[in-house]
């Protein structure tokens, strides 16, 4: 037999427990909401990044241009020689063909984040999906998961990405990029790691701060940032590389097929 006094005690205890759960839950949800920034939708590359002189716009939302890779001396020499060869070929009007372009192969990581074409962020439970319009490239960032080991995955164009939100910043860790998927023709090892921090610097401007670490090839982390401007209402278009007329001639130069 439960007395009325005992009933009141039980009722108060139940209210206290539910109240505590409610408050605890509310606190967790509120913190999580504060951590997450609204980055959904389509974005276009923002800023004039091709000529250092153009940086004098005074727009602080435009990050500095990408520096040369901090390659170790033995790799840097080859990288510089290849760059000079490309410049000389361009100056001669006989550009060296880019095999990926000729074969309709997309950029992979991190070149995809250059966002030559619009990019789109899709936010869903446990995953953020990043799509670039060009070549319909897709990255999947698995949230709040431990990163796998290199033995667990096969190298690919986009690698394996995990991420988490903290104080409005999306942190992403990516490993597992194929050796011939290169950013600015920069060689890398299987151990290359790409860390990204996505955060808004203005309501409609998103930055992706990219840090590449690769002790086998780099003397220090290679850090650079891309900025994107929101494209409200933009509908991403399909992109299929279906008819590339470009080919590589016997000298390795880029040519196009003339005629239908």
């Amino acid at each position: 037999m439960i007395t009325s006094g005992r009933r009141i005690e039980i009722l108060l205890a139940v209210i206290a427990v539910f109240g505590l759960l409610f408050l605890t839950g509310y606190t967790v949800v509120a913190a999580a909401e504060n951590d997450i920034a609204d980055i959904g939708g389509a974005w276009q590359r923002y800023g004039i990044m091709f000529n250092a002189a153009n940086m004098a716009t005074g727009d602080k939302n435009i990050p500095p241009p990408v520096s040369d890779p901090p390659l170790k001396a033995e790799f840097l020499r080859e990288w510089q020689a290849q760059r000079q060869a490309r410049r000389d070929a361009d100056a001669a009007g006989t550009p060296i063909a880019n095999p990926n372009y000729v074969n309709c192969i997309g950029d992979g990581m991190p070149t995809m984040m250059v966002a030559m074409f619009p990019i789109e962020f899709l936010l869903s439970d446990g995953q953020i999906t990043i799509i670039e319009e060009a070549y319909t490239q897709v990255r999947r960032v698995y949230l709040d998961q431990q990163q796998v080991t290199l033995d667990d995955i096969e190298p690919g164009f986009f690698g394996h990405s995990v991420g988490y939100w903290k104080e409005g910043v999306l942190h992403v860790d990516t490993i597992g990029i194929k050796d011939y998927v290169q950013f600015q023709y920069t060689p890398h090892s299987r151990d290359m790691r790409i860390n990204e921090r996505f955060y808004k610097v203005a309501p409609d401007i998103l930055w992706d701060e990219i840090t590449i670490t690769d002790p086998e090839y780099l003397t220090q982390p290679w850090v650079f940032t891309y900025a994107y401007k929101h494209m409200p209402g933009y509908k991403m278009q399909e992109y299929i590389c279906e008819a590339n007329r470009e080919y590589v001639d016997e000298h390795g130069y880029q040519q196009i097929k003339i005629g239908e």
Binding site: D90, N98, Y101, V114
Partner: peptide, 21 residues
């Protein structure tokens, strides 16, 4: 979208495709 085309593409395009021909 002029900004995208002129300012947001050229450098990236150079990695894809050269117009030097």
């Amino acid at each position: 979208y002029f900004n995208l085309l002129v300012f947001g593409v050229a450098a990236a395009v150079s990695a894809h495709h050269s117009f030097a021909m």
